[in-house]
Design a protein around this nucleic acid. Sequence first.
DNA 1: CGGTGAACTTGTCAGTGACTAGATTGATAG
DNA 2: CTATCAATCTAGTCACTGACAAGTTCACCG
Lengths: 182, 182
Amino acid sequence: MAARRKKPASQYHHGDLRSAIVATAWTVVARDGLEALSLRSVAEALGVSHAAPAHHFSDKASLVAALRVEAWRRFADALEAGQGLRAIGRVYVKFARAHPRQVQLMFGPGEDNEHAARAWALLRAAVMDLLGPKISEAELDAMSAAAWSGVHGLATLPIAGGDRVTERVLDVLEAGIVSARR
Amino acid sequence: MAARRKKPASQYHHGDLRSAIVATAWTVVARDGLEALSLRSVAEALGVSHAAPAHHFSDKASLVAALRVEAWRRFADALEAGQGLRAIGRVYVKFARAHPRQVQLMFGPGEDNEHAARAWALLRAAVMDLLGPKISEAELDAMSAAAWSGVHGLATLPIAGGDRVTERVLDVLEAGIVSARR
DNA sequence: CGGTGAACTTGTCAGTGACTAGATTGATAG
DNA sequence: CTATCAATCTAGTCACTGACAAGTTCACCG
């Protein structure tokens, strides 16, 4: 797992328990979901007492918050690979279908973070490119909301349909944004 | 709560414990979410032993499944009040924002049910009205997916913006569906 | 060398879901 | 009327979990 900060004279101090906890919890959540996450099992997997995590996370909720930030970080990183609204939409949908647990985590209760803001900004910028520079702020907000909504719904709804349907939905969004623009 | 089936000589048999459990669990979930639901607290609230629910729901998951059906029933009932894609979209968004816990429940893990199918059918019929009779089946599928996605995303995404933004997003969806139609 | 505080351990408690065995009841059959 | 009997509910228990309290180890600093 994570490297120890220094050669430990004994095993008493783990060295980087906080990161190790996040990493282990991450794999559990990615595989089995949040319900399957328990502080005790994580502690046991790391060979550490059941109360050790309490020193790094006051709460289970506090650990989940850290996982949530991590999920947004990976998601925003993935979105950065896309150029333009269509490409970002494809990445969004692909990511959400490949990692449903992470998306569930991202949109669960909790505060926003820098990575969430980064993701939103990427999508909004793509909409701005599509609309041209003369668009008003209010109109940009509304069109961005439409783009986000369509892509997010497509990504998270249990809709049958492969890449072909995805492309058609992106067609609708692009065409709609362009033709409903004011 | 629910009426007893017959006048009970004693309190031993509740009379309609199953319905009472669902009703109590429903209020808990609607107010505090699924995490706050426990079989024991429901049993205690009904003045019944902690193991009584096991006779009606083999499992906690089984109770949750019943709640899920109930959530879809209310949702589909609400959608029936809407005429046309715009109206259904408004109702969808309004419902989801008024009852976020129910929506979380509806789209959680579990099997589909008749009420879910009814809701989908309503939305799909509204899209069909918009597209006219000559549309192909595959195209109707794709356009319905676009409509569902847009409305669902708008309803569930934490997007700032009131009715005005909702109307603009519906503009985009209508315009997009009409102009991307093949 | 001794103190200080962070990191970790051990012990414990209450709440939870699930399981088992047994008690109570109302309906049904004889 | 009475003897069953299945459904319903109670009581007791187990394993697991999150949270808390108190003690232990260790690195570091003066």
